[in-house]
Nucleic acid binder design. Sequence first.
DNA 1: CCACGAACTTCCACTGAGCGGAAGAGGCTG
DNA 2: CAGCCTCTTCCGCTCAGTGGAAGTTCGTGG
Lengths: 255, 255
Amino acid sequence: MAGNAREPGVSVASRVLAVLGAFDAAHDRLTLSEIARRSGQPLATAHRLVAELERWGGLTRSDDGAYGIGRRLWDVGTLARVERDLRDVASPFLQDVHRTTRETVHLAVRDGLHALYVDRLVDRTTAQVLSRAGARLPLHATAVGKVLLAQAPGDVVRAALTDPVRVTPHTITEPGRLHREVAEVRRRGFARTAEEMTPGAWSVAVPIALPGGGVVASLGIVVASPRRDLVRLVPVLQVAANGIGRELPPGWTPT
Amino acid sequence: MAGNAREPGVSVASRVLAVLGAFDAAHDRLTLSEIARRSGQPLATAHRLVAELERWGGLTRSDDGAYGIGRRLWDVGTLARVERDLRDVASPFLQDVHRTTRETVHLAVRDGLHALYVDRLVDRTTAQVLSRAGARLPLHATAVGKVLLAQAPGDVVRAALTDPVRVTPHTITEPGRLHREVAEVRRRGFARTAEEMTPGAWSVAVPIALPGGGVVASLGIVVASPRRDLVRLVPVLQVAANGIGRELPPGWTPT
DNA sequence: CCACGAACTTCCACTGAGCGGAAGAGGCTG
DNA sequence: CAGCCTCTTCCGCTCAGTGGAAGTTCGTGG
């Protein structure tokens, strides 16, 4: 007997990665069976890999049997460029902005067709506006996203503005209007949103550019009321953004 | 012909993990050869694994040929418990403490015989006191460390205080004195250090406990001058620590 | 201009690590 | 206690993984 029928062309490495890929923001704790299902692998195979990952410290298992990402993988993730350089440099500036405005501050880079939130600062008092470090939100519905879009290659802009997702009743979904808006962001040097991503949230954002000129990230503020003077915060953001750009290693890319 | 002589007993998974393990705080960018050397694998083997990791997005290669940790792994690391729950809950409180004191704030958990810094807040103006998120420092030479030690199992305390490393001229290295100090920390509810880890740095820290009673983390402040009134900051820390403890999911552990 | 070395990439035939169906163990529920 | 679920262990077949070696690219210095 002894069963076998190894699915061909699948490397062990990719199986390991499939296990890691089974975890995401909405599924940060999984049972063995869930991991097997979500990674598309037989239970026995998943079991073996998970056990090895746990032994190494990449996964941890809690009393209830569920697995979560372990410290070892957290350590490794911490070494990523996005995290290390940008966060380290930007963190004090985010604090400056937060201290003078008392509003939620966001730091994001472009990741494909999404804005990837690298860091954020929230008041305990302020309503949770969503978004945590690591979150990915659509480019066309967020202020940081529009800023990043304004500096992105033409094909990215086209792809992002083709059939844009409607997130709230206020989300702008007409490609034409979005193209015009992105052009205006490029001209004016900042972007705004009004409840386009989250009901009850208004925001502005500015680009973070290297001294050389390349835009590498975006810095934004989110407030919970339709303040007309939101634009007045733009200079605050710009000072911080310039500071961050200057302190980044020359030639830095978020890749 | 074709050479071979596969080293036995080494799983592919462990080879993948060895590649990841080649990266650390001091080596966040490595060339292929370095990865091969540091992970103890033949060049050709490392090459294959690295290529697969890169394809998945776990590693990125920059123009100069060096590899770094990629976004995909950053994402995964972001899902770790230490990161997610603790950071999310504690972040606003760290900001509160920072706003009222204007000093460097640290959040740490115990990881074996080290204090693992999960988050920190620094002024741009303040001298960089060392430590970034992800750093591991000895338990006996830091305030957060002493706090964590005060609540640790007996064998951990013994192991940590046996032959303690001398970091600065002020580091306390007599096991007896350290044991007494740890007992006092337990009694008093907070710990201090005076240039024991970094010359020119003084600190206090308090435990973060769950409503149930278990200490899960430590919150500390570092200042750059030997202020006598450092102890006056303890109540500020305690208020924040209580708040964090209350908001953590019941039964939370940093594992 | 070419020789030399170092870092990287590709190739390929052998073989043991990995595979997964199946059976067993434990636990919860109706 | 039968039924169902999740987890763990077992084992013989086989193909994915292996690593020495050859080829490629690049930089250096003679």
